[in-house]
Design a protein around this nucleic acid. Sequence first.
DNA 1: CTGCGCTTCAAACGTATGTTTCAAACAGAC
DNA 2: GTCTGTTTGAAACATACGTTTGAAGCGCAG
Lengths: 223, 223
Amino acid sequence: MAQSDTVDRILDAAEELFAERGFSETSLRMITSKAKVNLAAVNYHFGSKNALIHAVFARFLTPFSATLDSAFDELEVRCEDHPPTLNSILWALTESAVRMPQRNEKGISIFMRLLGLAYTQSQGHLRRFLEQEYSQPFGRFMKLLKDATPELSAVDRYWRIQFMLGATAFTMSSSDALIDILENKLGVETTVQEIAARLVPFLAAGMKAPDKMLVFRAPASVA
Amino acid sequence: MAQSDTVDRILDAAEELFAERGFSETSLRMITSKAKVNLAAVNYHFGSKNALIHAVFARFLTPFSATLDSAFDELEVRCEDHPPTLNSILWALTESAVRMPQRNEKGISIFMRLLGLAYTQSQGHLRRFLEQEYSQPFGRFMKLLKDATPELSAVDRYWRIQFMLGATAFTMSSSDALIDILENKLGVETTVQEIAARLVPFLAAGMKAPDKMLVFRAPASVA
DNA sequence: CTGCGCTTCAAACGTATGTTTCAAACAGAC
DNA sequence: GTCTGTTTGAAACATACGTTTGAAGCGCAG
């Protein structure tokens, strides 16, 4: 069982280092020395650094998208004919994320941080890989959102979904740092689950907000 | 006036490249060849790549923080004794951002994208630089937000502010791409100002959302 | 014109990166 | 034991990076 051992050790080390340092800032030598394998092992088993990045994502994104898919199935069954509510959709999403089998205690925050990095760091190859591998669950999520917010125009919904994605990806991608800051400032300890529990109502309220401001410059009357 | 020409050309090129590629992914050689100056000019005028990054931020953040400060002054004068509302604070912020003198048509989106990168890319030196240079206007903004949302606990407010920052930085940083996608999909044209007009109500509604979910696993009852 | 500070330039420096090479070690089948 | 295909190992490869160097160019006071 020599191969899978080396492969897994590389994936574990890469995942952790990518999450805490980003892709470009993590070298293969850091990864191989943390994994205690030979430098050439990465190129032997994965072919290239980019392929390793893809493998790291595939390892947690494939089971996650399966979990998510069945969570959506369950949601639609439970709702029978009427479309699932916005809150229930967002909960299904976060539940699926949080329930994923974790390799260690840092699992969920690594997971989130990697997702945030995927969106944020403009790595063209990664975006292309994710789009062609995981467009199905993403499209389904969008469809559900559409049915849950029939009162929104297509344009409004488009922008508000972007706002949601932004708040989520951004917060989660720096969740560790933000948790540390909070602990230093207010002495409060937090878990990623608690962040999610605060994020969902925020997003839901934003999606259901009243119309956009019609006039841009309205300084005197708003106060 | 040879110096300032070279310096500005470097800053312009660096700003644009950093915004579209990130810091580590942008080399000094890319910057100097785009700016059409000699490679050594960066180290001559700025000292190091990190110092160049600081200079790029200082060039737009210093005037912006001044504009913002006077916008907040005006806001507090207009409100006399009672604290400014959440909406008016957010409007003062976006107005200050949008009104900033732009070097070109991409100015505002570059501005936003750089702010997002500063938060996202874990460049320790940048965070340290920004914290020690611009803690005053940031602190004032936080203070205003605090007085505008007295109903929130400190912890709730902390996280919701992070969510706001995320939605804003993320959306604005990819505003060009998002505007293009929207035009291709729905045939609707948009300006950054209109995005802001949609974003502010979203953020305000999120900040004023009802409490966080108390129980994390509440699948059956929500739907 | 000469001399002096500041700026530009081409070239090189040392280091770190991703990747390749090829021999050695290994495991399992015969 | 010997052969065969797979995996590991140390070393080197070519390239790209940030930075430094020292000479050349420039503008301007004397």
